[in-house]
């Protein structure tokens, strides 16, 4: 291991890969998401990264479909236009409904929007609000549990990507990401790289390096192109 990696490992809380049924700890701790208790043992219930921090055990999942939560920002696609509002596909087994008074201009079938989850009912169907239409750009999909890595601590990762590539990026908690402008192809590749390496350490620095390399590469190619 290099020194840089060591430093990163110390900064981050210790995390390790667990599969369902693996014991995380036998001590009494607070229960976070992704764990259950049996016979006094705290056990992982999903495939993911186990974490023991501030007396709380949890497993950050690596796979799984999106389930809406109140307050999430989601990127959706309009799939039905009705009189009281719109049915929106939010990349989830559950439907979302967008009341008509939550949009400025009428939407059409197929429009891409970004909105906030206002309310989730007992069977997880949701009502979303404050919708804004996204024009143009590119829509990519990643595994929704890995979205927090794309955003980073205090949005450090996503700020980095936006600043370096000059792209507009909107990340939905449901795993849909909208990218427009700037070096959008590099932003896209960087996000896919984050998705693949979501379970590794020192990702923010590695991604920044990756983007810088790719940009300088494409700039030097561009100059050569001009010369010819």
């Amino acid at each position: 291991m290099t020194d840089e990696k060591d430093a990163n490992a110390q900064q981050d809380v210790q995390r390790w890969l667990v599969t369902p049924g693996e014991v995380i700890t036998e001590e009494r701790v607070k229960l976070g998401p992704g764990v259950y208790v049996q016979d006094g043992k705290v056990i992982a219930k999903v495939l993911g990264l186990a974490e023991l921090r501030n007396g709380m055990a949890r497993v950050v999942p690596l796979e799984g479909n999106y389930v809406p939560k109140q307050g999430d920002t989601v990127v959706g696609i309009v799939v039905d236009v009705k009189i009281p509002g719109y049915d929106v596909d939010i990349n989830s087994p559950y439907k979302a409904f967008l009341p008509r008074d939550q949009v400025r201009e009428p939407l059409e079938y197929g429009d891409v929007i970004v909105a906030t989850v206002r309310f989730v009912d007992e069977v997880k169907n949701s009502v979303i609000e404050n919708a804004r239409k996204l024009e143009g750009g590119e829509l990519i999909y990643i595994a929704s549990p890995r979205v927090p890595r794309v955003i980073g601590k205090n949005a450090s990762m996503i700020t980095n990507i936006k600043n370096l590539t000059g792209s507009r990026v909107i990340v939905g908690a449901n795993g849909r990401i909208w990218i427009k402008g700037g070096y959008s192809d590099i932003a896209r590749d960087a996000i896919y790289k984050i998705e693949r390496e979501a379970h590794t350490h020192g990702l923010t620095d590695r991604i920044a390096e990756y983007i810088k390399d790719r940009i300088s590469e494409s700039e030097s190619n561009g100059e050569e192109g001009k010369e010819n």
């Binding site: 599969t19 369902p20 049924g21 992704g34 259950y36 049996q38 056990i43 219930k45 999903v46 495939l47 993911g48 999942p61 690596l62 796979e63 799984g64 479909n65 595994a143 549990p145």
Partner: peptide
């Protein structure tokens, strides 16, 4: 099932 991220007691 575990690969799909489905919560389970054990494999």
């Amino acid at each position: 099932l575990a690969d799909a991220g489905i919560p389970m007691k054990d494999l």
